[in-house]
């Protein structure tokens, strides 16, 4: 009886600790992403017909297979991100870049939060900060800009490292 109770306590603890992070989408707002814009290349990359950019479907550190991102995204700083894209071959291509902030924010699904992203094409976008290659000046020094995919908000980098989506030009 005692062991059975302990077992149940573990189960309950797991339920409490497990964060519930369900995406919520407005039923009325117009979708800003979706199949009219995106084409899965079925190789871990997503082509955006609107902007002409090719994106990694999964965050850096994850592997894509059959529409599923496996493994954990790896958070990197700017040095790590710029190193990560050097000589990287993904979906048969080289020439991947760290996106600038305008490019990164172009992926936001404005009718959704938690995350503000199109999970049909980017299945494992986290409610977290994603690194850009852009910075802005704050009191004379550069501060890196990140996109908070929970809401789609551009922010000044708060942390040393952020998640990363890779981009390349297809024009």
């Amino acid at each position: 009886m005692k062991t059975a109770c302990a077992g149940w306590l573990i189960v309950l603890a797991a339920l409490v600790v497990q964060p519930v992070m369900a995406q919520t989408c407005s039923s009325t707002l117009v979708k800003t992403t979706g199949s009219e814009r995106f084409r899965s290349q079925k190789d871990g990359s997503i082509y955006d017909l609107q902007t002409g950019l090719l994106w990694s479907a999964c965050s850096y550190g994850q592997t894509w297979k059959s529409g599923v991102c496996s493994g954990s995204p790896v958070a990197v700083d700017l040095t790590g991100a710029l190193l990560a894209v050097t000589d990287l071959t993904l979906a048969g291509y080289q020439g991947w870049r760290v996106p600038n902030i305008n490019e990164l924010q172009s992926l936001v699904e404005w009718s959704c939060v938690g995350p503000a992203a199109d999970l049909a094409y980017f299945p494992d976008i986290r409610n977290n900060h994603y690194l850009s290659s852009s910075a802005r000046d704050v009191d004379g020094a550069p501060v890196i800009q990140v996109l908070d995919f929970y809401s789609g908000r551009v922010r000044d980098a708060l942390y040393d490292t952020s998640y990363l989506l890779l981009v390349r030009d297809m024009r």
Binding site: Y47, D48, L49, Q50, T51, G52, L53, L78, T79, N100, I101, N102, E103, S106, S134, A135, D137, A141, P142, I144, M170, R171
Partner: peptide, 24 residues
């Protein structure tokens, strides 16, 4: 045929970069 796209994004106006010392 290149990939079609309808609307090129605007670039940012950043002309400088971050150095390893954290300065512009």
């Amino acid at each position: 045929q290149t990939f079609p796209f309808t609307q090129a994004l605007q670039d940012t106006t950043l002309e400088t970069c971050i150095g390893t010392d954290g300065e512009w």
